[in-house]
């Protein structure tokens, strides 16, 4: 299966190891992975700040890079959601095609590759940070607000990892406070939300916080480091790739 990899700008620049793990994992699972070299960004930072109207060129570039693929995979729930909801390049047909064929990594592993087992180990206590856009937007997991049957694609995958113990949290889907530009325009609340998320993980003695979004993890990691905490963050791709 031919898969195009969409690596959001944060990952490209700050967390290349997440891109590498995603690529290796997909290859291990038998995919032929292509990385269109001229990709840049999904346009979300502009759009969430109210500047969606400036995104035409960015959208066109995205379409140009990905229009020829039937499977596009990205290790970011937030960027994936943005593209799925808001990508409108000049070529509307190609844009629609992309919107329908873009998958967040854990969604792709679960729904398309239908992965049921993985031979990896991670003998640690892990807390899952269920990022809002992946969860409420892409429905990677059931939302605590809804009266509906529970499920979680991310937990299902993590449970395949040998030795990994997933720790229960008090608030299993509370936002971490990253929120794009919110993290600096509303610094006080953003940091407080991050600290509160971390306390929940700390109370439950996790060694690693994992998740599907590097942006949330970067925010949490920034606070953890400042606190001198021993808790580390790892993107889910890094754990699943072993």
């Amino acid at each position: 299966m031919k898969v195009a990899l969409f690596i959001p700008c944060y990952i490209d620049q700050f967390y290349p190891q997440v891109g590498i793990a995603t690529l290796q994992l997909l290859e291990k699972l038998g995919c032929e992975v292509i990385f269109p070299l001229n990709q840049t960004c999904c346009g979300q930072p502009m759009a969430n700040s109210g500047f969606e109207h400036l995104n035409k060129d960015c959208d066109n570039n995205f379409v140009e890079n990905f229009k020829d693929f039937d499977y596009i995979v990205s290790p970011s729930g937030s960027c994936t959601l943005h593209v799925k909801e808001h990508l409108h390049g000049s070529d509307e047909q190609a844009s629609t095609h992309i919107r329908k064929h873009l998958y967040e990594l854990s969604e792709f592993l679960t729904d398309i590759l239908k992965v049921e087992s993985l031979s990896v180990q991670f003998p640690h206590r892990v807390g899952l940070h269920q990022s809002c856009h992946g969860q409420r937007g892409l429905k990677l997991a059931q939302m605590s607000e809804l009266v509906a049957k529970p499920f979680s694609k991310t937990e299902h995958l993590l449970n395949m990892v040998d030795g990994l113990s997933l720790m229960e949290l008090d608030r299993k889907d509370e936002c971490c406070g990253f929120g794009g530009t919110f993290c600096v325009t509303e610094e006080a609340i953003s940091v407080k939300m991050g600290k509160d998320r971390i306390s929940d993980h700390t109370r439950h003695t996790v060694e690693y916080i994992t998740g599907t979004d590097v942006s949330c993890l970067m925010h949490l990691e920034g606070i953890l480091k400042r606190q001198g905490s021993a808790i580390k963050v790892k993107h889910i791709a890094e754990i699943l790739n072993g």
């Binding site: 490209d12 967390y15 290349p16 940091v191 970067m218 480091k225």
Partner: peptide
């Protein structure tokens, strides 16, 4: 003010690729 930035990696994903 209350957060660190990630360490700058030696190369970007694109460069690695």
């Amino acid at each position: 003010q209350h957060r660190d930035m990630p360490d700058v990696p030696k190369e970007s994903f694109r460069e690695w690729f």
